[in-house]
Amino acid sequence: MSERHSRQLPESVGAALRGVSSAGAALWTSVEPRIRQWGAKARTRLRHYLDEGYALDGEAARPAAASITFEGATAIFGDAPALRDISGTFAAGSMSAVVGPNGAGKSTLLKLAAGLLQPRAGMIRREPADPRAIAFLPQRSEIDTAFPITALDFVALGAWRRYGSLATPNDDTRDSARQALAVVGLSDAAMRPIGELSIGNLQRLLFARLLLLDTRCLLLDEPFAAIDQATADDLLAVLRRWHGEGRTIVAVLHDLDQAREAFPECLVLARRVMAWGPTRCVLTEQTLRDARQAMQGN
């Protein structure tokens, strides 16, 4: 069709058209690199602004180990002190359980450690200093599960820092998201919307996202509450795996047997430190009784 059409045109018109198009092409090739350069520069600037240059260098920005040290930290909740004079260290590569009666300030301690809450007195030193080097899993997530996103895409969000706010996850990210889903035993649910998952499976999903987040320090607030035993066992295996990789893990627990079994370090809390050290020394009937009494005394 176009051939017949061009044959009807006079030769001069064809030549003129060819000339114009080749001139246009030449102009485009001369301008294109500059446009691309501008685009790339604008993109980098915007990304630096949105992501504050965090972890843009990938591996280089990530330290080998992470520790959190409390130095006389005090937190106020309402008018009453929620935590008083907390001192101690979650050492790099340690795996600690935080236990204590209800209202002992366990969640508050974790929020202080994560930098979500500032201490009223004392200080908290983090190594590395950026609180975003720490992953925090809240007790109750504020995730809107009605949002139409598949489990796979949800887990892929964990790699956000690697590609930033402006890019989309690539096939590599999707592959690692699939692997993470396999680790937590959710491979079958990859393409299901998150709203269809049970509470236990949602917790598995959050763990899979933490796998992709790949931080050196993980703070988990009652990660095994309200989920079934099989899920708890699977997720505990994930925790052990992270521990084996030298990550620092702090988890608030209610199940003391679980703490004895799986967590080498333990902190018993009753608005102040009752005991902090190796679990078998710390988690005794005596300290637990003391903790309960301390809470009643308050």
């Binding site: 949105l50 992501d51 965090y54 504020e142 995730i143 809107d144 949002f147 996103i149 706010s165 402006l166």
Partner: peptide
Amino acid sequence: AVFYRPLLVDGFDPRFLGSVAGRTDV
């Protein structure tokens, strides 16, 4: 088109976005 992903994630899991992206107040 430019801010598609952060706009969406800010809508359904703002706390997570705050933990991974530098700027979420925008």
